[in-house]
Design a protein around this nucleic acid. Sequence first.
RNA 1: GGGCCGUUAGCUCAAUUGGCAGAGCAACUGACUCUUAAUCAGUAGGUUAGUGGUUCGAUUCCACUACGGCUCACCA
Length: 490
Amino acid sequence: MENEQVIQRCEKLEQLKNQGVDPYPARYKRTHSVADLAAKFNGLDEEKLRIQGTISCAGRLITVRGHGKSSFAHIYSNNHKIQIYARLEKLGAEKYEFFKGLDLGDFIGVSGALFRTRTDELTIDVGDFALLSKSLRPLPEKWHGLKDTETRYRQRYLDLLANPEVRRIFQTRSRIVQSIREFLNDDGFLEVETPMMQPIPGGATARPFMTHHNALDMELYLRIAPELYLKRLIVGGFERVYEINRNFRNEGLSREHNPEFTMLEFYQAYADFQQLMPITERMLAYIAESLGMGLKIPFGTHTIDLTPPWQRLTITDAILNFSPIKKEDLEDLGRARSIAEGLGIPLTAADGLGKVVTKIFEQVAEAQLIQPTFITHFPTEVSPLSKAVAENPSLVERFELFICGRELANGFSELNDPQEQRRRFEAQVAERAAGDEEAQMMDEDFIQALEYGMPPTAGEGIGIDRLVMLFTDSHSIREVILFPQMRKQG
RNA sequence: GGGCCGUUAGCUCAAUUGGCAGAGCAACUGACUCUUAAUCAGUAGGUUAGUGGUUCGAUUCCACUACGGCUCACCA
């Protein structure tokens, strides 16, 4: 396991300790960060640099170019680097030997005067330096970087050190989340946190992770969605709430699925699903703007145009648009089932018309929806928490947003009729009894909340990971999650 | 879970038909006071992911296992 280089570095560490050097001192006083140096002194000429006197800064040693009695090196800190110049003449024999014994990856603090090299590079003429943290393992190689995907994901810190574009993705991720908060806060939304551990996992159709609380001696589930708690808050009088946090779903992993993933859910009282669509358009435009990207963003071979308004299509029209299927085929359970079977879609005996139509949509249309498209009017059968369309109770006031063939958001007018909600849950319970492990459970506590009265409300969920994928042109969810779930190492 | 592909030095990659396992960077020794992929000379570093099989001989062919990638299924 231990390679030669690790052994050598450990020996060096012991040697340093024997010489009375603390290889992991608690502190180092620096006058500037590396970034400060570039910002404050880059424009100054030799004369102005001289009057700055001695400065000090610290960072990780990333390159060394030794020339016998002098050495050039770079230290790196927080995305910036600065060249340092260490000389025997200046440091003395003992200290210069110490410098030459440093390894790439060591953290050091250096002090000295600034000057410019012949190539005009801002450089510290090292008057003194201190070891701040000894590195015992060699870092990935400096110009091929780290490519092995397994190592990149398992040891993300190496990926971040070796691959600047990876750093950028996670900086962009942070900025996106920040923009969303700005956008919603500015619109009067209250950020809240609701339980991750729930006695009844609701708000989505998915298999949950189970856990056990010892002191309470009760089974708990990691949440699959925050939805039912956020709606309790609407009942409680917070009329605009949102939460950005993790959901957990006990399902397969793929390029688009990680068992824990981040979701934005926001709820607005006195709004309906129609009003959510322009809000969504504005939110994504706001994000694009704050990233300085403009509304046409590259994704693989596509250019995604976020300019509002985006296309709106009912689920039925989407199927008709992208397949030779006829409207009548989608209105009769028998015909729809035979169409689905003809497409090779696996059905269960219990699947009704709504479920079959939804599966046909996913099969024939979903992947075609490259440019932003709102698919509206889903069947009530697959939407147990959405309010039905008044004129047609088999459909609900709901949309899903598709971009790049992937579902990115899901929004609807919230069902606030407690009796109807109870009937919908009962239908779910029946499906569950019939073997659908993802069907929802009865949540009496939630129904009780609705019985106190919830105003007409619209709510929406947006998958943050997928949103980050879109804005960073990333084609695997693992590229936008710092520590994606991996199988345990053999 | 199924199918396909991959795993060689710390990192990035080679290895002809099955015939001595190699390079660059990193490391070590030495030279070198303006380099920046520093340069020059030399040295060391391998259970070729693991186990088994075929063969005179396996990084190479076969089987199984582990891990990863793509893809299908499931899902968001």
